[in-house]
């Protein structure tokens, strides 16, 4: 679905490359989690996948970016955004500012694409129910908490039903319950065939929901793989990417001789439970 081959990019008038030799493959109907230290180039990568680079930001982009079989750099930005939806980091800036109620705010994109009115109403109600924000529909988007704004921002993007959705830290303002709900919604969307790329720090949730993880460091993607393999990789610390507390516990247990080196490190609660139960029974 998404295929980046040897992609390098420099911002206009910048002397250094922001990204260098990036390769990324994301399968249709899967969730790809992308992790990396802040400043590693994640937002830039998000904009490349969504077509904003090079259409809106200019600069020097090399390599090929194909989404849904198409080269996004050839068409226009409007072509790109009808294939890839982008949820930006700060929900306050995601809100259009031009609408007086949440209901109209969610419909803003649909209006721009000329969706018929009855279909708009149906889709807004649907997505509001999905994210459980029906009670906010008649409020002003500016009278919401940060977490509520984030849900509205997500709603206003998934209502467009683009085949691909890119999300740049979509749960930064949400409480744990809200965060879990968003991830559940993403998993439900994946079941309908939508491809999701999520830039996120919450590794335990990525471990549960993502199909693959990709690590951004040193201006490139340095590691790709199944979440369990990536999270147990010893090099994560050197790339300033954390890991789950179960991996950390597993490493401590290894250091103290409680876990033999040949036993793979646990990355989730369930795995940790299993591994330590087995070790106890062996002893």
């Amino acid at each position: 679905m998404i295929s980046l081959t040897d992609v390098s990019y420099a911002y206009p008038d910048a002397e250094a490359l922001t990204l260098e030799h990036v390769d990324l493959e994301v399968e249709r109907g899967s969730i790809a989690g992308i992790v990396g230290a802040s400043g590693a180039g994640k937002t830039t990568l998000a904009k490349i996948i969504a077509g904003f680079i090079p259409h809106a930001d200019g600069g020097e982009l090399s390599g090929t970016v194909r989404v849904d079989g198409r080269d996004l750099s050839t068409g226009s930005l409007v072509d790109a955004v009808s294939v890839v939806g982008l949820v930006i980091q700060n929900p306050f800036n995601q809100i259009s500012g031009a609408k007086y109620t949440v209901r109209e705010e969610i419909a803003f994109g649909l209006e721009n694409f000329g969706t018929p009115r009855d279909e708009m109403q149906r889709r807004v109600d649907e997505v509001a129910a999905l994210l459980r924000i029906e009670h906010l529909l008649d409020r002003s988007p500016y009278a919401l908490s940060g977490g509520q704004q984030q849900l509205v921002a997500i709603a206003s993007m998934i209502v467009l039903r683009t085949p691909v959705i890119v999300m740049d830290e979509p749960t930064a303002q949400l409480d744990p319950a809200g965060t879990r709900m968003v991830f559940d919604v993403l998993s439900a969307l994946r079941e309908t065939g939508i491809t999701i790329v999520i830039f996120e720090h919450k590794l335990e949730l990525l471990q549960q929901h993502a199909d693959r993880l990709h690590v951004v460091a040193d201006r490139s993607i340095v590691l790709s793989g199944a979440p369990d393999d990536v999270l147990a990789d010893d090099r994560l610390a050197q790339w300033a990417v954390g890991t789950t507390r179960y991996v950390t516990a597993g490493r401590l247990a290894r250091e103290r001789g409680l876990l033999p080196p040949e036993v793979p490190l646990p990355v989730s609660f369930e795995q940790a439970e299993r591994v330590f139960d087995r070790e106890r029974s062996v002893r």
Partner: peptide, 17 residues
Amino acid sequence: TAMEARGFGSAARRTAL
């Protein structure tokens, strides 16, 4: 960026909710 991601630059004839 957020506006363009929601089709603000689209040439389609707009509808109103």
